[in-house]
Design a protein around this nucleic acid. Structure first.
Lengths: 365, 365
DNA sequence: CTGAAAGCGCTAACAA
DNA sequence: TTGTTAGCGCTTTCAG
């Protein structure tokens, strides 16, 4: 009797009036059978033309009639029936650690748009790092998803094994994973851009607030930053590792700046770290950018409204989400697409937290 | 041949080995038929016990056998089949204007959790205010959702009419709507709490940055704020209306502070407005909280890391999302639940942007 | 109290 | 080129 357990939609008029479904509001419930009847063909023929006949050609005449009927009756296939027959769900799961984080929200947005364009649904599940993905397991158990996009930061955890054990096709998003299909942005290039920009502003003694070393993106950003420093022949950046949180960034800033010979510019390899670092700099009375420059990895609307506005590296996370969907489709198609990368280059967004190195005397180190 | 159009999951072993599904990894594909066989009963009997028999009682003995079989074989119903038979989707649509906005993200989180606990899926669709909800229409057309949660800020638009015309059961979230089921938080109480807190700090001349007057929450927050001022017998707050964006908040702050006799405390009725206002105050050289106090409606992690940290009113948006799901279930059950409100009271989160009124001489106005 | 049978709406062999 | 048939996995009358 209740929706949760039983059929409830019987409020809606399911009785089909074959001919005027388009004019009836609340209608549009034409089934394949109806359009077949309307076109004067068998239901299977109708199915064939609507699906783009696989082998046998359908005559132009009947094709036209069926199409016209489908159009008139506003035919829309019932996905439950279709999916049941096709033994699939027509949906992907997307696992992210934190919905409120602008980066993940952007990634979700990209995935949603790409999937929508292909008639696929995306079932988002938020699972904090370290927590068990109960809800997602249920989606698998219920046959509600055909595959899974895993976008959690930390390295493959026990929950990933569960999905693997259950044969769920999986693509790892925003991180590499041994022997699994992955999609990433060019973290190294983003970090390198940050360093080069600092260099152009005259900074030679630079620091980096990195993330946990078991987080793949953290490693790659750090690598890119250090490599770029090596390339330009400036001293190895001092590093302080913190959680990818505002508090982590704040502590790391304190740590870096307590050096007797502190950096003149710091790269925060994560948005929240950067915000935390900025806040802490203010608490220390460090003027930005006069005494210290700050560049952060990643972008969000709020970064324009911190004081000062953050200079930042924008990465194409929306495209990453879209690519992830395409990649999973490939996997489901049996192709082995692995280690894809979004080619769109990182973008420097000018704020006011990066300024010229005032300490010119030391610039030549 | 391709996933998007055809069956692809045939990589997976669909052949059932009735007895050892539990031990086979990648298995757990037991169907109802299998557990019926295992329990030595007819498939319909198995269905009855698993669904909690509607009328006819099932003997304790068979019930036990079926349950045991289901447990052994790790039976999980196929939702596509179930939904097809039940003529429903087992999923809700959730329409929000902006995924990256922390408030909506929190709302989504609440909805997701509530739905998960009930075995329902939530299909999130992001539709910027004023845009057409193409993707969502498709979900309806494809019979992928049983109902819709609309959480866009602006008043009912053309797209809402489309869904209504198509008989999609709808609940409006975070706003009132004429004659439709709605769920809201106590915006008035939140705004009133802001005002009373300012009052307690000695402020008498207060201002409010409100939102567009065609946005329901903006109206209610403004009402709550003004009513509270009336109750306490202080002058009517000066209002500046802005978009619910950082830029809107910034302009509104400039406008309020250009008054010859400016307020000593300002209430920003939206998080982004508050962030914009804070930024602009800094640009004007207005020291917060020494020269001007600021309280913002709504909460987010970053508010702790602005400079100074924002004093703010936290509203239970996660509970709002959960309530929305429950409300839609009610509607689908035929009950007419309307204008529900989350009872959890607003919460004051102390930051550093609210301070005592230094302008004591004027406090008694 | 349980079995038999029909069918949700759709697709895909196999025939004709 | 098109029609016939079977069936995806499940629920639910209707008999017995």
């Amino acid at each position: 009797m209740r929706y949760h357990d039983l059929d409830v939609i019987n409020e809606i008029d399911w009785g089909i009036t074959v001919d005027n479904a388009s004019s009836k509001q609340g209608g549009s419930r034409a089934r394949l059978r109806d359009i077949a009847a309307h076109a004067g063909v068998h239901i299977s023929t109708a199915s064939r033309v609507l699906n783009g006949d696989p082998r046998g050609e359908v005559s132009a005449d009947t094709t036209a009639r069926v199409l016209a009927a489908a159009d008139t009756l506003q035919y829309k296939p019932n996905s439950a029936a279709r999916n049941l027959r096709l033994r699939r769900a027509g949906a992907f799961g997307l696992l992210i650690p934190d919905l409120t984080h602008p980066t993940y929200a952007t990634l979700v947005r990209g995935a949603l748009q790409e999937a929508e364009g292909r008639g696929l649904a995306v079932l988002i599940t938020e699972v904090p790092d370290g927590a068990a993905a109960i809800g997602l397991r249920r989606l698998v158990d219920d046959h509600r998803i055909d595959g899974l996009l895993i976008a959690t930061a930390s390295d493959r955890s026990a929950q990933a094994d569960w999905f693997e054990g259950h044969g769920v096709p999986t693509v790892y998003v925003n991180r590499r994973a041994e022997g699994k299909p992955t999609v990433t942005v060019d973290d190294e290039a983003g970090a390198a851009l940050a360093l080069r920009t600092m260099y152009d502003y005259g900074h030679r003694r630079v620091g980096v607030i990195s993330g946990p070393h078991d987080v793949d993106t953290a490693r790659r950003r750090l690598d890119g930053f250090i490599s770029a420093a090596n390339t330009l022949g400036i001293p190895v950046p001092v590093e302080s590792c913190g959680e990818y949180t505002a508090n982590g960034g704040a502590s790391a800033l304190t740590s870096l700046m307590s050096d007797p010979n502190p950096p003149t510019a710091i790269f925060a390899s994560n948005l929240m770290s950067g915000i935390g670092a900025l806040s802490r700099a203010s608490a220390h009375g460090i003027r930005i950018p006069d005494e210290l420059s700050l560049v952060v990895f990643d972008d969000a609307e709020i970064a324009d409204f911190t004081v000062p506005a953050l200079t930042r590296i924008k990465m194409p996370f929306d495209e990453l989400g879209a690519l992830a969907v395409r990649s999973l489709i490939e996997v489901l198609d049996g192709r082995q697409a692995r280690d894809l990368r979004v080619e769109t280059p990182p973008q420097l967004i000018g704020g006011a937290s990066l300024g010229p190195n005032m300490n010119v005397g030391m610039a030549r180190q």
